[in-house]
């Protein structure tokens, strides 16, 4: 397994690193427990809705820093609506690819960007907080990458059942007993779902 030269370049010399004083919007995704966390800060033109400046900070590995660097490059100068449409696959392609086990870094970078945009929209009454529904869980699971192949667990049809009742989210996952990423996938599901206030408990059946 090897990083592309572009990943290494962005890791060694990241673009847009740091913090913005008085940002118009900001967001933090991930957690130290899961090994990576990214914070992003936006400066947005109120009239044109163009992202005029964007900065990030990262607690994470080389690909985490590189994906945050590239996604902030890609978002800069775009309108919020354009930036929202950036995908983790585009970010990974722009870096000349990422190893499958590192694809989740790309997802995290894009999620942080989208959350920062949402933060701006809520502050400016352009959007409201999403109402929590059972489908929110499915949408969230689409952000969890199975490290062996670098695709999300929903597209891979690993998710067999999703339930939500009385604050308990139930997720049935099909994953081999001796799969080396079993624990990792379970940890990721917990991390992604436990951030919702509506979810009091996460039950994972494998």
């Amino acid at each position: 397994m090897k990083y592309s030269q572009k990943v290494l370049d962005h890791f060694m010399h990241p673009h847009n690193i740091g913090k913005l004083e008085l940002p118009d919007a900001k967001a933090t995704e991930g957690s130290p427990a899961c090994g990576d966390q990214v914070s992003m800060y936006l400066k947005v033109n109120e009239d044109s809705k163009v992202i005029e400046d964007i900065k990030f900070q990262s607690y994470g590995c080389a690909s985490n820093i590189a994906t945050a660097s590239i996604i902030t490059d890609m978002a800069k100068g775009k309108t919020l609506d354009e930036a929202k449409k950036l995908t983790w696959k585009q970010a990974a392609d722009e870096l000349d690819g990422l190893p499958p086990a590192k694809m989740h870094c790309s997802v995290l970078a894009v999620d942080t960007l989208r959350k920062a945009i949402k933060d701006y929209e809520i502050k400016h009454n352009l959007a409201s907080e999403d109402e929590f529904k059972k489908t929110t869980i499915v949408e969230e699971l689409k952000h969890i990458i199975y490290p062996k192949v670098g695709e999300d667990i929903v597209s891979l049809k690993m998710v067999k059942y999703v339930g939500f009742e009385n604050g308990v989210a139930t997720v049935d996952i099909e994953i081999p007993k001796f799969d080396q990423y079993r624990q990792n996938v379970a940890d990721e599901i917990r991390e992604h779902l436990e951030k919702y206030d509506a979810i009091k408990k996460v039950e994972i059946n494998m």
Binding site: L8, C34, G35, C61, A62, N184
Partner: peptide
């Protein structure tokens, strides 16, 4: 892993207990 990669770029080979570097991401 980030520390390790930067040390590697400086010509120093070490190991890390980071999940990002482990085979099972644990």
């Amino acid at each position: 892993e980030a520390i390790m990669m930067m040390l590697d770029a400086a010509g120093i080979i070490v190991a890390t207990g980071s999940a990002c570097f482990s085979k099972g991401l644990s």
